[in-house]
Design a protein around this nucleic acid. Structure first.
Lengths: 120, 120
DNA sequence: CCTTTGTATCGACCGTTATCGAATCAAGGA
DNA sequence: TCCTTGATTCGATAACGGTCGATACAAAGG
């Protein structure tokens, strides 16, 4: 999953146009965030105590079945936005803060530009 | 289109979970950016000289018909990400920088937090 | 073992959406 | 007024994506 690397190599939108490949990779991440359930899952995980949440914490928030939540978590995982780790009975998810930071840097110029340092 | 206002009223993801309504409104914007063509259109407009581009500048970049480009521009427009203005023969599009800045502020804590000032 | 509980995968249904060609509208010249 | 050019809207179609029930897997306890 070198998606994070691709996300990290883009200049801000206003600086120069994205190439076809860059826009394709970035769109995959934004598309993953383009669903209300997934965006809320992301915020629930990100803001949960300890920076992680198990699936059991997430399922009860929604009027959705387990398989559906599992599907959305998979989409977020494959987009590189979260990572999951099994510890005993439960699986804990946590966000990948670097990806969020780099996305933020793509949207606006001048901010979070340790991006440039990482890219080198 | 008070979408920009809704986008502006959200704390960073890591600070507190989004409500159902907040995630729904934010997801509409991220979904609009979740397509390679639209993301590239956005970057072409944002980085074009003068901060604006006419549709004729955008169509030739893609192997897509005019109606398809027009459709994607409409999606971006209805998401509040761009605005169009006709001047004579051509229609010029420009980005709404506030929306991008506020999206960026949702993704990471502490940055672009003139967000809070705007919200008041 | 077998059962229970937590989570993921599979297959199917169905609404949504990206795309096109054709038609339409808007502005400027001949 | 008509024709040309730029851009949108409309209608149709094919592909995608969110949701579910059924099933399968993984860990822990009887």
């Amino acid at each position: 999953m070198d998606l994070a690397a691709v996300v990290g190599c883009c200049s801000p939108l206003v600086a120069e146009p994205l190439t076809g490949e860059q826009s394709a990779e970035l769109a995959r991440v934004f598309k993953a965030m383009g669903d209300p359930v997934r965006l809320r899952l992301l915020s629930l995980i990100a803001s949960h105590a300890g920076g992680e949440a198990c699936v059991c914490d997430l399922t009860d928030v929604f009027d959705l079945t387990g398989p559906t939540i599992s599907h959305h978590l998979k989409v977020l995982r494959e987009a590189g936005l979260i990572s999951g780790e099994r510890r005993g009975t439960w699986i804990y998810y946590r966000v990948q803060p670097d990806v969020l930071r780099r996305l933020s840097a793509v949207l606006v110029p001048g901010e979070a530009t340790q991006n440039a340092a990482v890219a080198q």
